[in-house]
Design a protein around this nucleic acid. Structure first.
Lengths: 125, 125
DNA sequence: TACCTCCATAAACAGAAACTTATATAATTA
DNA sequence: TAATTATATAAGTTTCTGTTTATGGAGGTA
């Protein structure tokens, strides 16, 4: 789940989407992105860092230049994986053990009852 | 592109991912989410609003209760659409007209040259 | 009518994020 | 060696986000 959050957070920013869109054409140097996007170099570099930290990009040093490559594999894994994550049986997801249990115990007829049972649930731990 | 940003921004937050995961099991009332996630009601409501504004959720009033439904259609359209967006020929994307043009004019051998040409480019408009 | 439930929203605040300016470093070139 | 290029990163500032607390309103119920 953390990886989904990191990736989606990285994708949820217009400049970074533009960078990704350009790197989808071909790998590029920072200075090329700078020229094409007409943005300051630190701005580009900082966005690249966010994308790299989310494993969406790989960097490659070449003399004093650095070029960045989009990892289409990671992109596909995340985007498709997320759909699978949503479609999966929630009782099989370790991260949702508690939620899954509380969900099963819900009395849908009354939200108060739901809250009360959740409280008891919590108290009995 | 705006829609991608809005959706990804909405998805890039752990609580909202949890909410989505739960609503993937079935539509739920706010009070149910509150009970299952054990979070304050305003917190849940505000996250629901973000998701709704991104068209990921639809809301449905039922007496004094409100339940929320995940729009699997929107989810799929966005996640798959984004991959298509990246894969498309960039020259066909109206939002990247300028960038596309600058990209085509790049002199990759020198970043300075790139920047200069981008400047000239800008000056000649 | 009076109270209660469910929910939305506003205000306030803390922490995060994005941008600019400034600086540092490594590699290149003159 | 000195100057330049390409890039990263830090500092400072502003804006955005997420959370809690507080409030209000619409719909049921006693």
């Amino acid at each position: 789940m953390e990886q989904y959050v990191r990736v989606f957070k990285a994708l949820g920013e217009p400049t970074r989407i533009k960078i990704l869109r350009l790197l989808s054409v071909r790998p590029m140097y920072v200075c090329e992105l700078e020229a094409v996007l007409q943005m300051s170099q630190p701005r580009i570099s900082q966005h690249l860092r966010v994308l790299k930290d989310a494993y969406i990009l790989k960097e490659n040093k070449e003399a004093q230049k650095t070029f960045y490559i989009i990892s289409r594999e990671v992109m596909e894994n995340v985007l498709n994986g997320f759909q699978d994550f949503l479609a999966a049986d929630i009782t099989t997801l370790p991260e949702f053990r508690e939620e899954s249990r509380r969900l099963a115990g819900l009395d849908s007829e009354s939200c108060v009852a739901s809250c009360k049972s959740a409280e008891n649930d919590l108290a009995s731990q």
